[in-house]
Design a protein around this nucleic acid. Structure first.
Lengths: 136, 136
DNA sequence: TAAATATCTTAGTATAATACTAACATTATG
DNA sequence: CATAATGTTAGTATTATACTAAGATATTTA
């Protein structure tokens, strides 16, 4: 019953930026994403087209928002990232490296495996940086 | 000082089969790899060419062997795989899923992170399957 | 040894992900 | 309205993956 996020590395990067900025009340537009992801606008275009096709984002007057599915996927990515960070941190890896390594794999690991790890780790409420793992 | 393995997923798959079979005393030839990796021979060709370019394998009369570098990389992959498996298993993930998930990321995580995890986990000598983590 | 079989290799094609430049369109803003 | 900012298309490139068709080389066996 495992469930993959079904996204690629760059789609993940993009989704995280979008989600983060929505939370902060500054929804992205293409230019921001281009700057934040450090790629040209056509590359972002391409990325957004794919996220769109996958039903994860919506574009309203240049504003990029997350669909319900996108929101859910964003949440799963956050959870995955933090659970992995937490495990690494707990096992002696320095904070910044935890994040770097977690970023490489958080979109790959099956979500139900992450969920079970989360359970078995005692549902830790914070990641190494002190941010909450679930919710926000 | 982090160090990546510098290989792709399929190169990893291929390298593991080659290393495994060498250990068992049955060095692979292209046909075997084609069968074991479930891809056509030209695809294996391509794969071997790349592993060759990276200095990981050598081809002698159809026999595929690992170079010193290839042997080292194989060892690192094994270590990574088992350390990851071990962590998952220790945290409540069933054996077969540990292996499945580990296979997706063992070639991605920096080797020095793996080494530190290995240390901090108390240098466990076996993986979930009872095989040794280091050496072999 | 000649034919058959197995194995290897080349050539050509295809797709997906990533990323670029150049050019054009649209929308704000001064 | 003109300029600047932003978005979009079109076209190209690379890397990884993988295929089929066809030819080359061995090896085996009748």
């Amino acid at each position: 019953m495992s469930k993959t996020k079904g996204i690629t590395k760059r789609e993940r990067d993009c989704l995280l930026v979008i989600g983060e900025d929505i939370k902060n009340g500054f929804p992205d537009r293409l230019v921001n994403l281009s700057r934040k992801l450090q790629v040209s606008s056509p590359t972002v275009m391409n990325l957004l087209d794919r996220l769109d096709q996958k039903g994860l984002i919506r574009r309203l007057e240049g504003m990029v928002t997350l669909t319900d599915l996108g929101m859910q996927t964003y949440g799963e990515l956050m959870e995955s990232h933090r659970v992995i960070e937490y495990i690494f941190y707990k096992n002696g890896i320095p904070e910044d490296e935890c994040c770097k390594e977690a970023s490489k794999i958080d979109y790959i690991i099956e979500q139900d495996v992450i969920s079970r790890l989360f359970m078995n780790l005692g549902k830790p409420s914070t990641c190494p940086h002190g941010r909450r793992i679930r919710g926000d």
